[in-house]
Design a protein around this nucleic acid. Sequence first.
RNA 1: GGGCGCAUAGCUCAGCUGGUUAGAGCGCAUGCCUCACAUGCAUGAGGUCGGAGGUUCGAGUCCCCCUGCGCCCACCA
Length: 896
Amino acid sequence: MKEIPTRYDPHSIEESTYAMWLESGIFHAEASPDGSRYSIVIPPPNITGVLHMGHALNNAIQDILIRWKRMSGFTTLWMPGTDHAGIATQNVVEKDLARTGLKRHDMTREEFIGRVWEWKQEYGSTIIEQLKRLGCSCDWDRERFTMDEGLSNAVKEVFIRLYREGLIYKGNYIINWCPRCGTALSDEEAEHRDLDGMIYYIKYPVKGSPTLSRENEDYVVIATTRPETMLGDVAVAVNPKDPRYAGLKGKTLELPILKRELRIIFDESVDPEFGTGALKVTPAHDPLDFELGRRHGLPSINVMHPDGVINAEGGDYEGLDRFECREVILEDLKSRRLFVRAEEHVHAVGHCYRCHVVVEPRLSKQWFVRMKPLAEDAIKVVEDGTIKFHPARWTKVYLGWMYNIRDWCISRQIWWGHRIPVWYCVSCVGTRDMRDVDVSSPGAAGIYVGKEPPSGCPDCGAGEMEQDPDVLDTWFSSWLWPFSTMGWPDDNKMLDSFYPTDALVTAQEIIFFWVARMIMAGLKFAGDVPFNDVYIHGTVRDSTGTKMSKSLGNVIDPLEIIREVGSDALRFSIISITSQGQDVFLSRDKFDVGRNFANKIWNASRYVMMTTGGCSDNVEINVSSLSLADRWILHNLNLVIEEVNRCFENFRFNDAASRLYDFIWHKYCDWYLEISKLSGDKDNTARVLVTVLRKSMQLLHPIMPFITEAVWQMAPESSSGLISASEWPLKREDWEDAASAAKMEKLIACITAVRNIRAFWNVLPGTELDVFFDPQDENDSSIVEDNRVLLEKLAHCRVREIRKGLSRPEKSVAALLGNSRIFVPLGASVDVESEKQRVRDKITEIERYLEGVGRKLSNKDFLSKAPREVVEKENKKLAKFRQEADTLRENLEALV
RNA sequence: GGGCGCAUAGCUCAGCUGGUUAGAGCGCAUGCCUCACAUGCAUGAGGUCGGAGGUUCGAGUCCCCCUGCGCCCACCA
């Protein structure tokens, strides 16, 4: 027998257990195209990240699936990794540099990238190490990073293929621009938040009008939320049907301050109801205005530098920050009496999802992916059920986005990332501003697209080629993750074995960023869907419902929780409070459940090992010689095995957790363990104790891997292997024994009834009660007779007589067990008067039920339409209530 | 402006295809340091399921409307 510590110490156990797993190599999956296999890919956390509760939940779920499938005999692959998080990482490293007084542009691009790699080397695997603390059984031999050679190669391959197919293009459009990060963002990366802003009404004078006296004759009032963009105004648009502005035909306006002449354009898209019905048109700073400008042949005037500071187009305002400029312009307008009024106005404003600065719509040349053609198949596979979302409601969200998909801006004006594999010939394109090169015109010369730098210009033969300075959106590598991590396009051995993967487990906020795009890329490049099931779990929020985030300071650090209660307790707790895709409201005390449960398991296991000497569970149990309690617990074990399997299959992890909790704690520990102490057949009892414990540990292992492994290792024959590599328990026909289980339930009810009487009548704890049992039939009679000792010990009583129809003893109270009755004489120890009312109340309550059931049973429709078993149940219920009420009345009489 | 989710014991939440006296954890009450566990044991008191209507023999569970909270999407300046 091994020495088992009295106190459960999660830390040392978890640490040594994980080391043992790593050493055993069970997490590693060899590629083999044959046999049943199960694979999932981790949603790669980014290298700047630290483990938060969302990760903990996400990875706990994945680990459950993988461990369950591994034990079920599948070859399992769980491929871990990280993504390079272009903008986020660059921001972090720049901040780091700033501490030494350096800026990114103080060094060369190569030097800076070198710094980022250094940073990655040092800090980039923090989160990976934390996943190990959580117990994740990833195949660490196959860890991937989006900037690895293989993945980078896949990125280039995909870019080139899409470019050649015309699905990637470069164009001049309004994109979301983050002035702080200095880069374009995709639509998804601009988070829209409602802000309480202002809308300003401003007079634009009609050119040539001497005064500002008459509205719509001498001046027009426009409404805007961003007055600073008026510096880029080139027109004012009104609806052609708007009578207020009909008289303005043929006239022009004068832009205040800058005195620029503005055309008045008439366009159906202008809503006469909004503001004044007159819209200032700023094609370089607003997507709608950009379209208007195109339709009406207007120029675009960009008035801002990339960092949001007004440029030379802004005249006197040059050098002002955009928001500063807004205030100054408003002041100037007021002093010129051109300011009409300001109103409070709530509107959605885009924010950079990395730095939360207000995004500026900005006209610029960027690379885009044409998404419509890619979306077609991605729509089909979800509509036809090849890919299923769990819960199903996300299907609609996904499809809605797919139907209205817009082109994806993939170029970023940063340094850290996959550089766009396009080179330009300096002499052919005639500029050194490579970002500005127009590649869209057919047959444009001096453009080379390929994986490696060209030796010279393919068109003019000259040597000087310069690469496009931009890098690709990080998601342009993430969307390839399921197959790029498996060697695509060069080595397809892994793909053959493990692609498509089976399940993707992720959070709701990442459906568009990642899930949808992976489906498109998988179909386009790997020839199949990347996974079949998408399980969307809830968002982890704090107890007030706010999303947990570091900046809000409302996080509960999973690592701290692990330090306090252990990883198993963390996992069990968070799993058991997360029902199917519902958001999780977390508070510290939630983790007590897991901590207490782990403690309970530890102590029960310790006890079992101590009393059984860790007897072998390899010895077959001879079912025919088992006691009632043995049969009952084995029968229940069968039930749990079935249910846990069903729960895991349907992504109902919380149900599995609570089912196991109930079985282990309330059935095994509370009843079976206690009964085992009274057993006369030590051999059989020991076998059942150990068997049920070990099977329970196996069932629980996917949720609480560490403690279950530790318990498994307590047994002397643990040399047979790891629980992680053990065979998943199956239901056993020879353990099926519903009849015995029902008998045991009756005995339990009997014990509970006597205990209840003791507590209800305030019998002193030391008092041994006398029990008289009036059984309804042979069956009940034998249950009590055969298990007399259990009843006496567990209810602290003495069974005096078992006889059908025995007469009620003097001064006794009764309890019911179906139609059997238990009498307990209480003698003088009962305070009769004070208990009468309680009995009367109980009778009233039961009579109310009786009334309801009676009404139901006299309803003809019910009798004719309800299924027979339901009617039978109701009849039984009626009989039971009647009996109970009668017995209570008897009790009451006895009291009187 | 669309779409979605949630409102069930004091608190936090389960409740799958409508059918036993609606469950759990925490908290609370009473009694126990019983030789695995006080991170424990035993017993118990608490909800008629946000509001109105409908379908049905029967609804927390399906349909409609209303109220409150939350989230997502959307180029109304």
